[in-house]
Design a protein around this nucleic acid. Structure first.
Lengths: 207, 207, 207, 207
DNA sequence: CATGAATGAGAGTTCATTCAT
DNA sequence: GATGAATGAACTCTCATTCAT
């Protein structure tokens, strides 16, 4: 009666997974639909049963990417530990977050950044999502910092949102360097240093 | 003859300048040779008198990009001021470095990052240059930090190279955020906060 | 078994009816099998249970089309009225033949004409059928004219087959104009005028 | 200094001429850009230097078609001869108008008719042009008929516009039959018969 | 030297057709 | 028998590159 039954959502994810793998290796523009079809082990036409255009695949792969990138801070955030411990825990945990999967994701991130900024003024679903993403991360850190200020552990003469931006930037920034030159990096030591720098400062003595 | 050579170089730069402007707006792949020719106000064929392929233009535009991006730390570095002052001067000056020209450059940076990483294993002139670029910047900061350690102003229990990576990352990272969402940023305050955070730490008291 | 056969034929007609509706709206080439399946309210695969190819559907839809287009002159033809009355009756009745259904059919006719002529030299089932169709119509009119000549009512210095061709052409031709520009037409008056023109002539007096 | 110089308009016409030849043989939908390029003896890409889309080629080929189809009645129309002579001249001349070139044009006409009607409700440049074309032709004949009425040569109890529609339709209609079945036709005799029928009527005697 | 008309390889996309369910 | 997911041939269109002028 009915034809072959497939889980449409699963199939879409299968395609997006394949797409992301190829995108990470070749970039959006050099990736062809044929490439994606080959990676997903299906015919070129099948791709179009699930996505209308290549553009659409790129957009949805960003969602997919985000779904799988999300660092899980949840446990840390809802814990009862003091704010400063939360920060230390996150800094220390960050190194563990880094692996080959993340690496692939970061390589793709460059393309998403580019894509986002290039379509900023038009439709820009990626752009919008990305802004939300960064905003959310800054807010996580800003909240912890404000919490720490309330606890008296963190100095009150700085803007929590600026500090949050600095922290997010630092984590982001070292990932960029790491992706570009893995060999130069003792990731663990760099994150440890970030923890020390941000919290205690680099100076020998407070001035 | 010498005049000819200068002329030739000038023409190349004219093309590269035009290319960079278009690249920043549309990205590498969406930019056509026609676009570049139009922006450079010359014929499509003329481009090929100076560059063999589009690829070559992209590669050389990275050099050109770097030549014009270079933050001038020279004055600070050769000055006699103590290391910590050098760092403060750089952090404070960083906000001034940011302008619409830089913004355009950063939008292009995403493409170069992507391009670099995608050709990492093949030819990768951009990749190599980029690694050198980051290494150089890290070394500048590492040198200052080591200098500061020698002066006794900077704590000796951290790895200067890791700290340098952290600083470069932080500066890079906030630029990414700024480019993606200019409105959310008080750039001056964020760089000020980076200075405070890194040097004095966020804690109320040293533990 | 007989029931099955009837059922099968019914299903084929269901498909052809749907096909014709879509063909009339979008033309052969822009109509997809999916369109037809949707219009026939069945699955795409089911279509192929009844027809081997899209081509075959087009061919059979011409038969179907002809079966439903057929103007019923039968009653007029077998009646005992004089030839000239037969012609007048047909001319007068022609306006009544025109309705929205006919309109749709005529829109399709353009496609069949095109299809016929394009396959003239190859297989050309439609071409053959169409030639037969026109020939038959011309013969109907030629027979009436010959009959009228026999009755002495119609002049004998013309070729009945040429006159028949002219009549069929005129009826065909005004349908084309009507389909292309319904608003410009008082169909009833035009057919009345055709009757007058052809029979009595446009001249005030015979020369 | 400047590159190859070509007459752009000439090149466009070269393409349109080739397009029409292929269209007439294969129909719009079965004609590929490659076909047209081959017929025009140029590369596929060259076509796109002159026309943006296949659609555009179809539209412009209609203009081109019309430009080359136009029957030249001018001489007849401006002549001093009486209206009835004008009609006779046109009817007699019509057979001469028919040749292999016209045949090819008529084969294409089916496609234009179909195309026009299918895009009636959307953009429909062809549709609009075609309506104008028929309207113009009807007006030519209506004017002659009115002139003839003024001269007292043509009866006044018919609507000139309806008669004009009938004449245009008859000419159109016999062309359709001729294109579909050349062998059945003594074109000269049919046009002669049309002249006789329309002017003097088929009846032996006026009733 | 400068140019832009010409080109075809190659990309995205459509859709008739097949076939496992 | 009925279905629609899967497929790839074939089509439209783009654009880096060439080369006659």
């Amino acid at each position: 009666m009915s034809a072959k039954v497939v889980d449409k959502q699963e199939r879409r994810d299968q395609i997006l997974g394949a797409a992301i793998r190829v995108f990470a290796r070749k970039g959006f523009s050099r990736t062809t639909i044929s490439d994606i079809a080959a990676a997903a082990e299906m015919g070129k036409g099948t791709i179009y049963e699930y996505f209308g255009t290549k553009e659409e695949i790129i957009h949805h792969s960003f969602e997919f990417f985000m779904r799988h990138l999300e660092m899980d801070f949840e446990a840390v955030l809802i814990s009862k530990m003091p704010a400063v411990s939360k920060l230390r825990t996150i800094f220390d945990g960050f190194a563990g977050f880094i692996d080959s999967h993340t690496r692939q994701m970061m390589e793709l991130m460059f393309d998403f950044w580019s894509e986002a900024i290039k379509n900023k003024d038009t439709k820009g679903a990626i752009y919008t999502e990305m802004k939300k993403f960064y905003k959310a991360y800054r807010e996580i850190f800003a909240d912890i910092i404000i919490e720490g200020m309330g606890e008296g552990a963190i100095r009150k003469d700085i803007n929590p949102r600026s500090a949050a931006a600095a922290i997010v930037g630092a984590l982001d920034g070292i990932m960029v360097q790491w992706v570009l030159d893995q060999d130069e990096f003792d990731f663990k030591d760099v994150t440890r240093t970030i923890g020390i720098s941000f919290l205690e400062g680099l100076l020998s003595e407070r001035t």
